[in-house]
Design a protein around this nucleic acid. Sequence first.
DNA 1: GATGAATGAGTGTTCATTCAT
DNA 2: AATGAATGAACACTCATTCAT
Lengths: 194, 194, 194, 194
Amino acid sequence: MREKIINTSIALFGAHGFRETSIEDITKELGVTKGTFYYYFTNKEDVLMHIHLRFIEGLLEQQKAILDNQSKTNQEKLHDNVQMVIRNIRNGVQSAKVFFREMKHLNEHHTSKVLPKRHEFQRNIQGIIQRGIDEGEFRRDLRADMLSFAVLGVANWSYFWFEPDGEVSEDQLTDIYMRMIIEGIQTKGGEIDE
Amino acid sequence: MREKIINTSIALFGAHGFRETSIEDITKELGVTKGTFYYYFTNKEDVLMHIHLRFIEGLLEQQKAILDNQSKTNQEKLHDNVQMVIRNIRNGVQSAKVFFREMKHLNEHHTSKVLPKRHEFQRNIQGIIQRGIDEGEFRRDLRADMLSFAVLGVANWSYFWFEPDGEVSEDQLTDIYMRMIIEGIQTKGGEIDE
Amino acid sequence: MREKIINTSIALFGAHGFRETSIEDITKELGVTKGTFYYYFTNKEDVLMHIHLRFIEGLLEQQKAILDNQSKTNQEKLHDNVQMVIRNIRNGVQSAKVFFREMKHLNEHHTSKVLPKRHEFQRNIQGIIQRGIDEGEFRRDLRADMLSFAVLGVANWSYFWFEPDGEVSEDQLTDIYMRMIIEGIQTKGGEIDE
Amino acid sequence: MREKIINTSIALFGAHGFRETSIEDITKELGVTKGTFYYYFTNKEDVLMHIHLRFIEGLLEQQKAILDNQSKTNQEKLHDNVQMVIRNIRNGVQSAKVFFREMKHLNEHHTSKVLPKRHEFQRNIQGIIQRGIDEGEFRRDLRADMLSFAVLGVANWSYFWFEPDGEVSEDQLTDIYMRMIIEGIQTKGGEIDE
DNA sequence: GATGAATGAGTGTTCATTCAT
DNA sequence: AATGAATGAACACTCATTCAT
């Protein structure tokens, strides 16, 4: 039941928003009464926090697996990160929407639980880039912190427009994005002039 | 007064969200009564739509000036677009937050007024990229549509984290982003091997 | 303008009710602003009272002409009264609706101006019946007061269902009603047995 | 509680009108909060419809019992109908007031539930009269449809003025009304002249 | 004569939350 | 583990009315 409530909440929060979804919307969908909700969760925000935690912890876990893989270059790790984010957004658009849009509804206490993990995720990407710079894979003249935001922007923004059933698959999209990020979009000819 | 209401609404919607801001919050801030609000706007959504329209129409206007400039290369036009978006977000973070997060509160009729303009903005960027490809400025093996989303992701995402008073200026940020987008982040040495 | 406001008010109060009609509804219909309304009337109820007064005073005036006619029998006077009421309702259904349904919105002071006239109208009909009884035209075993309510009920109720464009004319209707009231609906054969 | 809310609503709607009665008026009278009202009814109109339905369905039920009685003449059935209407109005003046005055507040959907029943009630009376005509009880030269409106007008109008504690009882009133309707108010001598 | 801006009290409705059972 | 009744605070919106111009 706990699980059911969370999943229904994700669907409804994602589709209509946190404030726009009432406890009754959730319980009606499940065929139970409001009391049931309060048996499993202390309040509405409680579910929201679980959705946030589940999402970011899932990302961090997958990110950890990528980071721990010693055999890959930083470029490959960056690729895997982008691919993983896109895959997660595609598989759980509603979760992603809740994650990106509805954080302001967490109170200070809950925010202090979620925000550090969000930062950790970003800093891990920054770390990959920095190491790439240090090890000569990536150019020195760009800041790793800003680039991490750029990479995240590219990947995360897909929650805004990506249609799971669209003609472009998540792998194709990752490929295009990574070519841009790694190689740039200008023609090689353009480089001759440099 | 109309103007005052819009500006206060931007500030409050941006800071706390559309649903979280009550009409009374707005009017109290202005030292007028609720009736005044309804004298100038038919309802809450009405202000929201004006905020949306004003923002996107501002972007489109600036974009038009960039597009109309015959003397610039596509690369330069892309640069100007990114710079312009970042500048707009920086100068009106709250407007941007409302614009990116609170569109679901527009009804169908209002959405049909705003959405086409959002698409127009994106397609114009896509157009620059496509022309860059056709004219040999940009590589042929990447899709212009997906790249436009990538560029928008990079630029727009800054509304999520950019601090106007931070150490990085909008021009520095634009520069870093554009170098990544145009040239890629890998070292030149890497290209030698290709 | 005063006249225009009254007429528009009759139309709107009749169609949607007093409370359901806003001052703005009235002034919008006339293409003027709310201020104009308050230039001609002290408040909303003020118009309502004028509608009431105009209607009942019109009825009383016409009734006076009927009563003053010395050459007619009481039966004929009753007939003329019924005919007159039906004609008035037909010619001003909206006025009639306001008159019968919206008196509760008058305050005590206004009620004390209108109510006595309504009573006067009813008592005048009662007077005709009573004189008819006294002069041997009408039967003695029925109470004039109750009969006046019966006659009024028959005539007034038409405001509830009468369609001005219906197949039955006001004269036909008056004829049927008066035959019932004067002669009753049973067959004459029934009277033979008495 | 549902029942309590309905009864209080009848009392208040009847005394002051539907629009003039606020939900708070109702709940305050019952010593509960507004929320309670909305637990039992979806909105204000919802109660109104139940009042309407209860009233008209009560009338139809009683009318059915009268119609089904094979041993009575049409004249007697008409009598019973009039008596029944007057009794209902007397026992529930407030219900009657709501029923006759506040139907415009029902929306289209609700109206379509109530109106057919009102028509059914009228047509049943028309049916009694028509059968009376066909079977020779009532005169042929008057239209059954118009007469049904006349009878209803006589009986219904009592909601407008009838005082339950007045000197005239409902049976006396029925008697006077029925004599008028059946026999007419003119003296037998008057008929000699015909 | 008429306008436009502003008021302020009121009203229907929503909804997260509580709690006895 | 779940229900159903009840709460109470909040909120969007309406509208009669005022008044300086």
